[in-house]
Design a protein around this nucleic acid. Structure first.
Lengths: 335, 335
DNA sequence: CTGTTAGCGCGTTCAG
DNA sequence: CTGAACGCGCTAACAG
């Protein structure tokens, strides 16, 4: 592989001159520039960014740690991140934890070792240690989608509590009183916020909260299926189901189908997170849709701003709104 | 940030000893090892892999360039790559080209600059230059999913021609004679192979090939929609549609719905690429399913083998089988 | 089992 | 406008 010295020799200049041409830094005579560029082309020279970064202490690379790349919601977030980073000349290293703290820790170390300039983290849990670790390495971090109690860090997330409140109100307005909540893991803020919004709507409507109708599970199809089976065994059966994310909703739909129940005639269903338009022929689910792409974009822009600005004096929390989209699965008002 | 020298000083040893502890290379006395490890913990030392890679000329990083991360087919491939790489202690940098050659070129440069040890490439076109470029930089490459004519490189792909042949035979056996082929871009091998398999099945059955029923488009919902609209305008209308991938199929389903046609009663539909079980409540499409995860895994294992083995004497082409899954959308035999 | 020397490829610093 | 010297953090090669 050609190095900057090979190019310099061929062009009859010093290595530093080649460096100036590559980076457009400092003054270079047009003629020497042309000679250098010719030498670069002749040799097929490609700069070694490892060496560059080692010297300049900047990698122009961000790390994105998320919890489930197989969920279209997260791929959409990732696209927002990638686009914003790319616009600013940054690359992104994508890491998938599958909600495992061990994997998260592993990737955190990888990213720090790779000297990324900043990290976008969807925390697998509410633990504060991962944030402390990143910051202890003088690396900037923005937390995505989920809150971490007592952490000193920027956050970009959606209003889960508000979305859940609105979806629950919708069900209440249709006459439902026994609404089962199929949420995500305890300790994950979006799952807790979902429950909080649900409780608030019920309380406000003067309905009692039956705590046994509140399930904490995982953000997966299997968990959605299991929680639904469990809820359908209750008597009286819940008349409506609230799924904490799109995968839980799909699991719920399967469980309902297997139980011979129609949606929405026998059981209404609402959910967080839409499925991307590309993946569905006839959108059917009533959902609280989160601006996934926008969330990724804004988080990245905030992170990039932090990088150029230096240590922040005060941390930001950006909360994006959710949009309620009413479709067939929530059904008509009960008679 | 602490460096290896800081750790060495604190532990009262030479930097190289710290290096040996970190990398488990060479012999280190248990006691000194313990002292070094204590110093590492005290200082919160994290090795700088940039420096390490600059010196050792190995980054333990692979690049994966694919064409559409929003398609679940490719996220599944990516998981296979990631898992295989992770098992071998390698990281993956994921790059998304959206089928654009310009983006592909950009990412190719980024990866080479980052000194990745190898590249997995889903080529945006049949052009040979990108392969030449990677190889000119002494970097290994494995081509994924698509063939590149005349290129000297390893390939891991699926048997598109065979899958298309079988799907077409299925439609023929059900009595269909006017089958519209909605394929991907001209020049992309999977799209061409689809058409080839379709032609072979028709020829073998003694049916004429109506070339005007063969469309080349893009692997997108919009293109699937447009091609379908165009085909439905033909008289007589095709009795069956063959979609070149899952997004084309979804576009076709929408166009059929908007035209008031039922599937399969009015028009049968078959497709390449299944949608992941996680995303669909009731699988309905008859498809030629490709082993996406396995393709990613095998390609990665081949690439890793190349890395440790040195320059290959002869290139491999691994062709994985497709599986025909018959569901509702292909319908019953025509009377 | 441990240390010394040197240099990976580049950019910063200071001089011309 | 151009260049020489030096060092980023780490490890290969060679001692001892």
């Amino acid at each position: 592989m050609a190095t900057i010295r090979d190019v310099a020799k061929r062009a009859g200049v010093a290595p530093i001159t080649v460096s100036r041409v590559i980076n457009n830094s400092g003054y270079v005579n047009e003629q020497t520039r042309a000679r250098v560029e010719a030498a670069i082309a002749d040799l097929g020279y490609v700069p070694n960014v490892l060496a560059r970064s080692l010297r300049s202490r900047r990698t122009h690379t961000l790390g994105l740690i998320l919890t489930d790349i197989s969920n279209p919601f997260w791929t959409t977030v990732a696209r927002g991140v990638e686009d914003a980073a790319s616009d600013a000349g940054f690359n992104v290293i994508l890491c998938n934890t599958d909600e495992s703290e061990a994997e998260q820790d592993k990737y955190l170390h990888v990213l720090v070792q790779k000297q990324v300039d900043g990290v976008l983290l969807v925390p697998a849990s509410g633990a504060i240690a991962p944030i402390k670790f990143i910051q202890s390495q003088n690396t900037s971090v923005v937390v995505l989608d989920r809150r971490i109690p007592d952490s000193q860090a920027d956050v970009v997330r959606c209003n889960s509590e508000g979305g859940a409140y609105q979806l629950t109100r919708l069900l209440l307005s249709l006459g439902h009183r026994r609404i089962a909540m199929l949420s995500g893991p305890r300790g994950v803020s979006t799952a807790e916020d979902c429950v909080a919004g649900y409780r608030r709507a019920l309380a406000e409507a003067g309905a009692d909260v039956d705590a046994t109708l509140i399930c904490y599970g995982e953000f997966s199809l299997e968990s959605g299926y299991d929680m639904t089976v469990q809820m359908l065994a209750r008597t009286p059966r819940p008349s409506a189901l609230f799924a904490g994310n799109n995968f839980i909703a799909i699991g719920a739909l399967r469980a309902l189908r297997d139980a011979g129940l129609r949606v929405p005639e026998d059981t209404a269903l609402v959910s967080f997170d839409d499925l991307p338009a590309d993946l569905v022929v006839d959108p059917f689910l009533t959902v609280a849709a989160q601006p996934a792409y926008e969330m990724g974009r804004q988080a990245t822009e905030l992170l990039l701003a932090r990088l150029s600005a230096g240590a922040p004096t005060t941390y930001q929390e950006i909360v994006l709104p959710t949009a309620i989209i009413v479709r067939g699965s929530s059904g008509q008002a009960l008679e």
